[in-house]
């Protein structure tokens, strides 16, 4: 089912995977929000590299622009706006009992996902092996995503605009504050 990969490819894949995993572990153990955000950016970048290696170049670019760029900047902006870098705010992690329970829940979920990942996938859904390359030849990198997005998933795409409108309205209403809302 899977094509043969060169040794360099496999090595780079594992390298970026290990970087992503290590950054995520460092991210989750940080107490300072700024340090956590920067480690999360590192995770996002390694994942973008993995997307490019998995023949999803456009998604990789979107990952860097939208996640590592826009969303994380908004997070850092809020941290700095609320002035949350103080040491008093940093000691906010939960106690040992909570951490133990969280580790147990994590292990349980992990084993559950691993069991699910072993299920056999339906063969008739699998496209021919060179299908993606053909699409790439025919439509190039952006068109490969744009064509199903604007043909098969047009309704979902249009509904996404409604979602964004609702999100913008909600953010403005919530961020406006009490003084303006009391009127």
């Amino acid at each position: 089912m899977e094509p043969h990969y060169s040794l360099v490819y496999v090595f780079l894949f594992y390298l970026f995977g290990v970087i992503a995993l290590a950054s995520a572990l460092t991210f989750v153990t940080r107490k300072s929000p700024v340090a956590a955000a920067l480690w999360l950016v590192n995770t996002m970048f390694s994942l973008a590299a993995l997307y490019v290696m998995l023949d999803a170049q456009f998604v990789g670019v979107m990952q860097v622009l939208v996640y590592a760029g826009a969303i994380m900047v908004v997070f850092l902006f809020v941290v700095m706006l609320l002035n949350l870098g103080h040491p008093s705010e940093l000691a906010a992690a939960r106690g040992t009992g909570w951490k133990l329970a969280a580790g147990l829940i994590g292990l349980g979920l992990l084993s559950e996902i691993m069991v699910i990942a072993r299920t056999k996938l339906p063969e008739q859904l699998i496209v021919p092996r060179d299908f993606n390359e053909q699409q790439l030849q025919k439509l190039n990198v952006v068109g490969m995503i744009a064509e199903p997005l604007f043909k098969d998933y047009l309704l979902a795409f249009e509904l996404t605009s409604v979602l964004l409108l609702v999100a913008i309205t909600g953010a403005v209403v919530l961020g406006r504050g009490r003084a303006a809302g009391a009127r």
Partner: peptide, 15 residues
């Protein structure tokens, strides 16, 4: 692994 790290992070942090 990444998903589980996220879940554990939600559970152990208070920030």
């Amino acid at each position: 692994a990444l998903f589980i790290i996220g879940v554990v992070g939600v559970l152990i942090h208070r920030n």
